[in-house]
Amino acid sequence: MADLSQQDWTKQLKEDNNSVILDVRTQDEVDLGMIPDAIHIDIFKGQGFIDEIEQLDKSKSYYVYCKSGGRSGQACAIMNQLDIANAYNLLGGFTDWQGEVAHKQ
């Protein structure tokens, strides 16, 4: 797991052709907007979160965020335990996000 600043996280994401953006916030938080092209798996689902993470392609790199960086750090640690080697935590999370924001229609 690596904690990356937004600048490093977005730079590395752009250069990574085998990447997935993962939003681990609650549905209510996601409804306020999310980083474009992110997939959503709520970390508060407990075992359901683990079950969904285990279905992911372990060969990909995952760029993980939450509201402020705490839950996404936990998610990255869980992902590492589940044999996903490349999980990158966005420090400051969505709260400090300066990039594009997508809203569900």
Rank of each mutant, 00 (worst) to 15 (best):
N17H: 11
I84A: 07
I43S: 04
G48K: 06
E29M: 07
F44L: 12
K60L: 12
D83S: 15
V64S: 05
A2C: 08
V24D: 02
G33E: 06
Q7I: 12
G93D: 06
I41M: 05
R71P: 06
L4H: 04
I41H: 03
K14F: 00
V64C: 06
G70R: 12
I84F: 11
T95N: 13
F94R: 05
W97D: 04
D28W: 00
Q47R: 13
G48D: 06
D96V: 00
C76K: 05
Q74L: 09
S61E: 08
C66R: 03
K14E: 09
V20E: 01
I35R: 01
G99L: 11
P36R: 00
W9S: 01
S59G: 15
C76D: 06
D83F: 13
N18R: 03
F44Y: 15
W97V: 04
Q81W: 09
I21Y: 01
R25T: 02
F94N: 03
E52I: 03
T26D: 08
G33T: 04
N17E: 11
F44T: 14
L82E: 11
N18G: 01
I21R: 00
N86Y: 12
S72Q: 06
A77Q: 15
L56M: 11
W97N: 05
S61H: 13
D16G: 05
Y65A: 02
I78H: 05
N17Y: 04
V20A: 02
I84T: 10
M34N: 07
Q98H: 12
T95G: 05
G48N: 08
T95H: 10
C76N: 06
T26I: 04
Y88P: 00
A38I: 07
N80F: 10
G99R: 06
M1I: 09
T95Q: 15
M79F: 09
F94H: 01
D57I: 10
L90M: 10
M1A: 14
A75D: 05
E15C: 01
K67E: 10
A87M: 04
D28Q: 13
K60G: 08
I41L: 07
L90W: 02
Q98A: 14
Q27M: 11
W97A: 05
A77F: 13
G69W: 06
L90Y: 03
V101R: 10
T95E: 15
V30S: 02
D23H: 02
S19G: 08
V64M: 04
Q7H: 12
F49S: 12
I21M: 01
K104E: 15
Y62W: 10
E54L: 15
I78Q: 07
M1E: 09
T26M: 10
Q12V: 01
T10V: 14
D8I: 01
N86W: 07
K11F: 07
V30P: 01
Q98L: 12
Y62V: 07
D57S: 09
L82G: 02
F44S: 15
M34S: 14
W97R: 00
Y88N: 04
G48W: 03
F94C: 00
K60Q: 11
Q7S: 13
Q27V: 13
